[in-house]
Design a protein around this nucleic acid. Structure first.
Length: 567
RNA sequence: UGGGGGAUCGUCCAAUGGUAGGACAGCGGACUCUGACUCCGUUAAUCUAGGUUCGAAUCCUAGUCCCCCAGCCA
């Protein structure tokens, strides 16, 4: 985290959303010397693209307003939290491109302070130990339309509360025996104010504090106070915490905290064909619908990373969608746009045949080969060129040939001439089929005068196709991914019903040009006319595996689909 | 029927009393050795009804619809 010179607090991009407006206004009014934000994940799962929106917001504000942003783990529930998640979250935030510098904190760092403040609340008569069972507390809380009833333990003397609370800490009582509650208002229309639980007994091992604590603070009690301890000025969270704000403020007002942070809420991210719920994502993993948190079909940052999505694409996406208070669902197409845009600029071009169809160039001498030059990136000469081999036996894409093509089909068909990219024009002479009538091979002729891909007589072809020399092509496994859900608005409550059975399509007979294997395959490449692919971690020397990050925009396929829909 | 929020092109986000704008998607075209990219053009919206005002997405009144809250989760 960089901390630019003071005085540089004028906001360069102020006013891009209502939260930044507030920050800019507070800074202009000299309410704070510096904007301090925080990203506060609970380590009970992996981060997903919805978190990326929050990360970019919080770290972005710090950058733009010359403030700072903390990474703080909200680790108040040891029953659900694990070290694996803590490590994964840090890795994901870094991957996204943000740096908390020295500002790494945990709510658990403040457990002792929080405890002392709780005793203070008890001493002030503002909190009490409740012996009611969980069930009784629930019943006495009332309903949305009926007020709650005071606990019979609400007027317990301070000394007794203190004694009981200390014994709770000492571990004298089993889980659920008692809780510490704030004494606010059991009749409040806001249920969060009906004597909210501040501490509960939990005999569990915490990833950081081990077995030191037998009681743990609730989210409401820990969160705002952690903000205050850290000097957070703008505590940004999602809409569902809006009606926790009065409680947030009550605690800040009634505790001797060192600063007074304020909470602001924005709408969480939703995307079509996607579920961004930690509960659902956890179940997808645990029930084996995906191979893990980093399954390339997952909307987790780990999944996107493995899928080959550049972090810049994620940042661009969350910047495009903006920040507001209205619930909304972003079209997944908008994310795909960001991914393609990021990849198009940098991905090196290669050729790969997903579903091979053999082609024999009848008039090309047997045994002869030649090296042709191909650009690594047509829009960037600096990316250089590579050699590709041409020979008598080739492979083209099955989709690039039709025996009886419709008018709009520009590719190869009997008697038709097309260009093989960077090579020659070829014309299809005949089709060879097997017993079942399936096309197994094409016999074509080439025009030696078109070497490199241009006809000296100026004649044009409608299509340019990718191809591979049979002797040089390398086998590879290609994994094509489709949305995990078939429903644009998947039902989180019954997500299994909306699962897409075809979310993963594995191509085991695909072929790639040698440069794909030989070159640096850690970065995504574009397999021309197909899409962007990146080497998967399961890839081995003898068995290269590539993930399709995303396909190229395919206007022809879209038109074809439309035609079909009409019929 | 308690409390808290929200409604602007198909979608997401702007416009804070003065020409409703941008992005994605769509459509049409140009270009093209990727049916990609790029470029040009274009369709398309203020939840409803009243009111205030020279002028309303914006202010007022009354409605409608949507979301969140009854964990010892966060």
């Amino acid at each position: 985290m960089t901390n630019p010179e003071p005085g540089e607090t004028a906001a360069p991009e102020a006013g891009r959303d209502f939260i930044r407006d507030i920050v800019a206004g507070d800074l202009a009014a000299k309410k704070y010397p510096q904007a301090v934000t925080r990203f506060p994940p609970e380590p009970n799962g992996y981060l997903h693209i919805g978190h990326a929106k929050s990360i970019a917001l919080n770290f972005g504000i710090a950058q733009e307003f010359a403030g700072r942003c903390h990474l703080r783990f909200d680790d108040t529930n040891p029953v659900k939290e694990e070290q694996e998640y803590i490590d994964a979250i840090k890795a994901d935030v870094k991957w996204l491109g943000f740096d908390w510098g020295k500002h790494l904190y945990h709510a658990s760092d403040y457990f002792e302070q929080l405890y002392q403040w709780a005793e203070g609340l008890i001493s002030a008569g503002k909190a009490y130990v409740d012996d009611q069972s969980q069930e009784e507390i629930r019943i006495n809380r009332g309903t949305l339309t009926e007020p709650g009833k005071n606990s019979p333990f609400r007027e317990r003397p301070v000394a007794e509360n203190l004694d009981l609370f200390r014994r709770m800490r000492a571990g004298e009582f089993p889980n659920g025996a008692r809780v510490l509650r704030a004494k606010i208002d059991m009749a409040s229309g806001n249920i969060n104010l009906r004597d909210p639980v501040l501490y509960r007994i939990l005999h569990a091992t915490h990833p950081r504090t081990g077995n030191t604590w037998k009681i743990y603070p609730s989210y409401d009690y820990a969160h705002g106070q952690s903000d205050a301890i850290e000097g957070v000025t703008h505590s940004v969270c999602t809409l569902e915490f809006e009606d926790h704000r009065p409680l947030y403020d009550w605690l800040i007002e009634n505790l001797p905290v060192p600063s007074k942070p304020h909470q602001y809420e924005f709408a969480r991210l939703n995307i079509t064909y996607t579920l961004l719920s930690k509960r659902v994502l956890t179940e997808l993993v645990k029930q084996g619908h995906v191979v893990g948190w980093d399954d390339p079909r997952m909307p987790t940052l780990a999944g996107l990373r493995r899928r080959g999505v550049p972090p810049a694409a994620v940042r661009d996406f969350v910047k495009r969608i903006g920040v507001a208070k209205a619930n909304s669902t972003v079209d997944v197409g908008m994310f795909e746009f960001s991914v393609r845009e990021a990849l198009n600029k940098t991905a090196l071009r290669r050729m790969a045949v997903l579903r091979p169809l053999k082609v024999v160039i009848e008039n090309y001498p047997e045994g002869q080969t030649e090296q042709l030059e191909a650009a690594n990136h047509p829009d960037d000469p600096a990316a250089g060129t590579r050699k590709i081999t041409f020979s008598r036996e080739l492979y083209i894409e099955q989709d690039d040939f039709m025996e009886n093509p419709p008018k709009k089909f520009f590719r190869l068909s009997p008697g038709k001439e097309v260009r093989l990219r960077y090579a020659y024009f070829i014309t299809c002479k005949s089709v060879i089929k097997n017993d079942k009538g399936e096309i197994t091979e094409l016999r074509c002729v080439y025009d030696p005068a078109t070497k490199g891909g241009n006809a000296p007589d100026g004649r044009k072809v409608k299509a340019t196709m990718h191809w591979l020399s049979a002797a040089d092509a390398k086998p590879a496994e290609l994994r094509l991914y489709n949305p995990l859900f078939t429903n644009p608005a998947p039902n989180a409550a019954n997500f299994a019903a909306d699962l897409n059975p075809a979310s993963l399509e594995t191509l085991r007979t695909a072929l790639v040009e040698p440069a794909v294997i030989a070159g640096d395959d850690s970065e995504p490449m574009q397999f021309e006319r197909q899409g962007y692919f990146v080497r998967d971690k399961e890839s081995g020397a003898g068995k290269p595996v590539f993930n399709r990050v995303i396909g190229l925009r395919d206007t022809f396929a879209k038109e074809t689909a439309k035609e079909h829909a009409k019929k």
